[in-house]
Design a protein around this nucleic acid. Structure first.
Lengths: 151, 151
DNA sequence: GGAATTAACATAGTGTGCTATATAACGCAT
DNA sequence: ATGCGTTATATAGCACACTATGTTAATTCC
């Protein structure tokens, strides 16, 4: 392989938004899982806390759209959460196909600790960013999500 | 639950850098996997293309540090890549514990298509961001990675 | 030089994501 | 009212991330 070819087969990964976003997300998830583990929780549970933390109930379908994951992923996560006593599933009286999901008291009482873990980790991650930079970062993420979510 | 409690148990996930980063990363990975699948590749292979695309060889240990994943994750990914004929493993003559890993010709010939997939997807994701905003986004990500990577 | 520690890699088990496909209830249209 | 397409959920199988632990080679320390 010549030098020219070698240069051709070279990419600076730090210039790839996708690579860097994945990297940051892995670090976020790794650290968040470590902080949630003592609570008996993990990162996959977070969308349910966001969506059902007010004590309400939603169908699996609605949760799937809210979390923006595929349906079988949601079904598996809910099965584990039910196994661990974190959610309650009951048949929707208006639709025989649908299940209504709500957080159990056990899960609801963990909510303040979950929020603290989220806030502490975000603070650790964003410590080197100023107020304006944080807002710009979140705004960019929102644009990226919007651009990739259309289908 | 009173209204006050309800408000207490509420978080705006779009204001959480960790949540939004995870969301964007899932969308990136989902779309990248769809584009890499016809090539017989997937997102987990990308660090090896970045690190070994010049035709060189590195130990599993060095690859693990480069990719910033845990050692068993790297071992499993390399096993799949070896199974699929994408990498070659040979014993390090200088260290009986170590294996030297390199991309096979089959993998190297896919390199241009990999780079195109990366570039196209980044362009799709960042389409709504201006030049300055893209640079700021990448700079913020680098700071976040640095803040979370220290251990 | 031999014992103990360290380092590199492998294996086991689990969680969370994906695709593909099956099952059962709903709803519309004839 | 029935038959058929659509919708909600479940299941199977895989990739890739993690932790915990085992194995073997190298290194360090008397």
């Amino acid at each position: 392989m010549t030098d020219k070819d070698s240069k051709l087969y070279n990419i600076d990964r730090t210039a790839s938004a996708g690579y860097m976003t994945n990297w940051a997300a892995r670090l976020f998830a790794r650290e968040m899982d470590r902080r949630l583990k003592p609570l008996g929780l993990s990162t996959g549970h977070l969308p349910m806390f966001f969506a059902l933390g007010n004590g309400g109930a939603l169908s699996q379908k609605a949760l799937t759209e809210f979390a923006a994951i595929e349906q079988p992923t949601m079904a598996a996560t809910l099965s584990r959460m039910e196994r661990d006593g974190l959610i309650h599933r009951e048949p929707d009286p208006d639709d025989g196909r649908s299940m209504l999901i709500s957080l159990t008291p056990l899960a609801l009482e963990k909510f303040p600790a979950v929020r603290e873990a989220i806030d502490m980790l975000n603070e650790k991650a964003l410590g080197a960013l100023g107020e304006d930079e944080r807002n710009a970062f979140l705004a960019s993420l929102a644009k990226i999500v919007a651009a990739l979510a259309d289908e």
